[in-house]
C-alpha cells in the first residue's frame, strides 16, 4: 500500500508540475475570439461586412473569377478604381456614367459600354464584350448584390468606397431594371434557340457556329459527338460529365430552374442538330 500511495503521489506531482508549468511558466495568451460571420441582414451591416459579401459574390455566385483571373480571359480588376477614371474620358467609351461608381455598375449590367482593347468578342473588333449582363441570364445578381460587388471592387482596387448599403432590400423598385421585371412576372417561353443562347450568354464560354468563347467546349459540331440525353444532362447538371481538357465547376448550375421545359427541349434539339 505504501508503494502504491507513493507511486500515486509521484504521478500526481508529475502531472501537477506539467500543469503548473503550462499555467505559470509560460505566458497565457488569450487567442482572438472567432471572427464574426457576416450577417445577411443589410440593415445592421458595416461597410466592411458589406464588402466581404461583395467579395464572396465576386468569386461565388457572380462567377466573375472564372474570367477575371490571371489566365488572361478578361482584364484583371485590381486597379479598376484608377483605370475607371481614365475610361470615362476614353473616346471609345459609349456609356453614360459620370463617376467610378456608375461606371462599375454600368460595366456589370451593360458590359459593352466599354471594351478593353483585346478583350472583345471575337470578330467584333472590340466593339462587343463577351461578358454577360450579371443581372440576367444564369448569374442573376439583384441590385443589392451588384452594389456589394461594386463596393468590393472599389475597396480591393484602392479606390474610395462610394456606394451606400441599400437599406430597403425587401421591396423591389418599381418599373426598374430588367432583372426585377424578369422576376416579377413570368416571361413568355422562347422558341428561338439563338435568342435563348443570347439570353443565357452561352456563347460567352462556348464556341457555337464559329462564334463565342473558349472557356467551355466548342459546341459547333456537338450533335455529331453527343446524344440528346447527354446534352440535356450537361445543361441541367454541368458537372455530371466534364469534357476532356476542361475544368469542373466552371459552368453555372441552376439552368434547370431558369429554363422552361419547352425551352430546354428547343436548346437540346438545336444542339443535337449541330453536325
Amino acid at each position: 500500500m505504501r508503494q502504491f500511495l507513493s507511486v500515486i503521489v509521484f504521478s500526481l506531482l508529475t502531472i501537477g508540475f506539467f500543469a503548473g508549468y503550462s499555467n505559470f511558466g509560460i505566458p497565457q495568451i488569450e487567442p482572438a475570439p472567432p471572427p464574426k460571420e457576416e450577417k445577411l441582414d443589410l440593415g445592421s451591416m458595416t461597410m466592411d461586412q458589406f464588402i466581404a459579401v461583395g467579395e464572396k459574390l465576386f468569386s461565388g455566385k457572380g462567377t466573375c473569377t472564372l474570367c477575371h483571373n490571371n489566365l488572361g480571359r478578361a482584364p484583371l480588376l485590381d486597379t479598376i478604381g484608377e483605370v475607371a477614371q481614365q475610361r470615362l474620358k476614353d473616346p471609345r467609351y459609349k456609356g453614360e456614367a459620370t463617376n467610378i461608381e456608375e461606371y462599375l455598375i454600368e460595366s456589370l449590367v451593360k458590359p459593352s459600354a466599354f471594351v478593353v482593347a483585346g478583350f472583345g468578342k471575337k470578330g467584333t473588333n472590340d466593339a462587343e464584350s463577351p461578358m454577360p449582363d450579371v443581372s440576367g441570364g444564369s448569374i442573376r445578381l439583384d441590385e443589392a448584390e451588384i452594389t456589394a460587388v461594386v463596393a468590393y471592387l472599389q475597396d480591393s482596387s484602392g479606390a474610395e468606397v462610394t456606394v451606400e448599403i441599400p437599406k430597403d432590400l425587401g421591396k423591389k423598385k418599381e418599373g426598374g431594371e430588367e432583372a426585377d421585371v424578369a422576376e416579377a412576372e413570368p416571361r413568355e417561353a422562347i422558341s428561338d434557340p439563338e435568342k435563348l443562347i443570347a439570353m443565357f450568354t452561352c456563347d460567352a464560354c462556348h464556341m457555337i457556329n464559329g462564334v463565342g468563347g473558349e472557356i467551355g467546349p466548342d459546341l459547333s459540331k456537338i450533335g455529331a459527338l453527343r446524344n440528346r440525353d447527354y446534352l440535356r444532362r450537361s445543361i441541367l447538371d454541368p458537372n455530371a460529365d466534364i469534357a476532356e481538357g476542361f475544368e469542373p465547376d466552371q459552368m453555372p448550375e441552376g439552368m434547370g430552374e431558369q429554363l422552361y421545359v419547352s425551352e430546354l427541349e428547343v436548346l437540346v434539339s438545336f444542339l443535337a442538330g449541330l453536325k
Partner: peptide, 12 residues
Amino acid sequence: TPTLGYAANVVS
C-alpha cells in the same frame, strides 16, 4: 480557442 493553461488543466 482556449489559453494553454486552460488546455493543460483539461488534459491534467
